[in-house]
């Protein structure tokens, strides 16, 4: 068994990858048993792997080796603190787990002052733009107008979006109401921009999987079975035809017409 694994590891890896790829893509057609099985395999692997990883990359080098190997015995208290989490299973003493949760939440809450400074102060600084500069004025009235218009537009957007997120002011005043609905308009432009900018990245994910199938898996298959290159186009055509036939048979129940 172990010899078999050692000898055939690359081939098994390749085939397993291909199998998993097809299993996951099968959900695009329809939920099925094949997908369901691999969903559970994935779950088991992810859990088992994080178990292994946590021990061998964090606990062992940072805790066990330091405590037992180097003899820093005080690290034993880390286990005491760690055990406090498990009091959540006791109805009576659940509060002890809240104690350690509290410590951790406190630690992360305490970082907020630095975080606010390091992240938002430079942002504030970058927002403080001059309404006009001598260089721009020297370039002539047209350049000045364009520059000033750009800066003003920036502030209109910035302040109107901030005003959309005011919660405690009754948005009755015409000014605030107009500003807040303007803010929502600009929000939509911003979200459209994010959507548009995201498409590209997601497509490359598929390209990555495809590259694997074509550059790694298919050559291996072709090398193993010479007749495969004749079968592959037939398989693809059959798959497409199958889907089209399936669609013809039964109109798909999803996709209600959009509601207003």
């Amino acid at each position: 068994m172990s010899k078999f694994i050692t000898e055939h590891a690359p081939a098994i890896t390749l085939w397993a990858s291909a199998l998993c790829t097809f299993a996951v893509y099968s959900i695009l057609y329809k939920e099925n048993k094949f997908y369901r099985f691999f969903e559970h395999v994935f779950l088991g692997l992810a859990t088992g792997y994080s178990f292994y990883l946590t021990w061998s990359l964090v606990m062992k080098p940072r805790w066990w080796d330091v405590m037992v190997g180097k003899g820093v015995w005080a690290w034993a208290f880390a286990a005491v603190f760690g055990s406090m989490f498990y009091f959540m299973y006791s109805k009576k003493h659940a509060w002890i787990s809240k104690l350690i949760f509290g410590l951790f939440m406190g630690l992360s809450a305490g970082g907020i002052f630095r975080e606010f400074y390091e992240i938002y102060f430079p942002q504030l600084g970058a927002t403080m733009r001059p309404l006009a500069t001598n260089e721009v004025i020297a370039e002539g009235p047209w350049a000045t107008t364009v520059y000033v218009a750009g800066v003003l537009l920036f502030y209109v957007i910035l302040f109107s979006v901030i005003s959309y997120f005011f919660f405690s002011f009754e948005q009755k005043g015409k000014m605030i109401k107009a500003s807040s609905s303007l803010g929502r308009t600009f929000l939509m432009i911003g979200f459209g921009a994010i959507f548009g900018a995201t498409v590209m990245g997601r497509m490359t994910l598929f390209i990555g999987r495809f590259n694997f199938l074509v550059n790694n898996w298919a050559p291996q298959v072709a090398a193993d079975w010479h007749w495969f290159k004749y079968v592959l186009p037939i398989l693809v055509i059959a798959a497409v035809a199958g889907i089209i036939l399936a669609l013809k048979k039964k109109p798909v129940e999803t996709e209600e017409p959009p509601t207003e």
């Binding site: 504030l124 600084g125 927002t127 403080m128 733009r129 001059p130 309404l131 006009a132 500069t133 001598n134 502030y155 910035l158 302040f159 901030i162 997120f165 005011f166 919660f167 405690s168 002011f169």
Partner: peptide, 26 residues
């Protein structure tokens, strides 16, 4: 409500900043 006031603090900071930046630029 406090957060709303906080946002106003930031807006005022930005407005002071705009004035300062314009002043130093001109």
């Amino acid at each position: 409500v406090g957060q709303d006031y906080g946002k106003i603090v930031l807006i005022i900071t930005i407005i002071i900043g705009i004035a300062a930046a314009t002043c130093t630029a001109l």
